[in-house]
């Protein structure tokens, strides 16, 4: 981030404090513990990754409500669905890629049976870093989004995660929650109210222009760089706004219409394959509403590899300079 960005201010989001950064998977683990006492129907199923999906705290505190299913994700999904059919609220957790890999089981057990199954995929995207391509969930949103009845959520920080998990427990029906391995700065304060199916304006210049150079739609791990890009562009004379898309399905088509009405262009950024995720959802909304607005999509176009998250975000075009570029001109 440039020094000039430090001086810029926004209406919605304070500059994130370093100390408040938290991986969304960590916030998920805390939310489970918070919700467990008042919701005895909550049970948790793991496939040998509870240390990584952050359900260990729940497992220790509520051993009779935690089921270790071993390295057998499809059975975990099926057993979770059976538990749901008998009134439990089961959370099945694994890496995003391993859950999405059992798509047909999810299709039948969760979506077609319309069970109250809560699927939590952590380690989303190239943001996981060094573990490399086989561990990166990069196609999961696209896969889950085309399943009827399945809601898809990707919160961008700890507070939003806690509220999204709370919503999941109240909501009856299958939900897929996508979480990061890496720490995320805190964008939402305790006064934030997560609204299912709605995007929220995460950052905009204090003095709002009539017209924005661009509105950036960002989700999950891509959000911090989107905010950094908008901040950096302001002193260069470009007003850019960042919209956070936590609910990826059903998508907030109205938010796209609003962006189209007062922005030169729309940019989408996501740590997911460029096909099927946030960018696709925004394009679908624009097509549905007949909006004549340029849309530039930023996402991952191939498999990842081993490196630091920062190196990978730069390598795959998700760094803030890439996003700034997309706000100004079409990418080749």
């Amino acid at each position: 981030m440039t020094a000039s960005a430090k001086g810029s201010s926004s209406r919605r989001a304070p500059v994130p404090e370093r100390g408040s950064a938290q991986a969304t998977r960590e916030a998920f683990g805390e939310a489970l513990l918070e919700l467990a006492p008042e919701h005895p129907e909550i049970v948790v199923l793991d496939a040998d990754l509870s240390k990584s999906t952050m359900t260990q705290g729940f497992a220790k505190k509520y051993p009779s409500r935690h089921f270790e299913m071993g390295i057998a994700e499809q059975n975990m999904i099926g057993v979770g669905s059976g538990l749901a059919l008998c009134g439990k609220i089961p959370f099945v957790t694994s890496f995003a890629c391993f859950l999405a890999g059992r798509l047909e089981t999810i299709r039948v057990c969760a979506a077609y049976n319309r069970t109250n199954l809560k699927m939590v995929g952590t380690h989303a995207g190239v943001g996981i870093g060094e573990d490399g391509a086989s561990q990166m969930g990069l196609e999961d949103i696209g896969a889950m989004r085309c399943l009827p009845h399945v809601a898809v959520l990707q919160p961008c920080d700890g507070e939003e995660t806690r509220q999204a998990v709370k919503w999941m427990v109240r909501h009856i029906g299958p939900v897929y929650l996508r979480l990061t391995r890496q720490k995320m700065p805190s964008f939402h304060g305790p006064d934030y109210r997560f609204e299912f199916g709605k995007c929220d304006v995460l950052w905009e210049p204090q003095r709002q222009p009539k017209h924005y150079q661009a509105t950036i739609f960002a989700s999950g791990g891509a959000v911090p760089n989107a905010v950094a890009a908008a901040r950096d562009l302001l002193p260069r004379g470009f007003s850019v706004r960042v919209v956070n898309a936590c609910t990826l399905k059903p998508f907030d088509d109205e938010a796209v219409a609003r962006a189209a009405s007062n922005s030169e262009r729309i940019v989408t950024v996501e740590d997911h394959n460029i096909v099927g995720g946030l960018g696709s959802a925004v394009c679908e909304a624009a097509a549905q509403k007949g909006l004549a607005v340029p849309i530039v999509r930023i996402g991952v176009r191939e498999f990842g590899e081993s490196a630091t998250p920062e190196q990978l975000y730069a390598r795959h075009g998700l760094a803030s300079p890439n996003i700034e570029e997309a706000c100004l001109r079409n990418l080749s």
């Binding site: 059976g82 538990l83 057990c109």
Partner: peptide, 21 residues
Amino acid sequence: EASTGSLGQGLSMAVGMALAG
């Protein structure tokens, strides 16, 4: 009790039902 037709999935769901019981 459970929508089926994709072979191999019913027993897992039955295990979940038994576990809930």
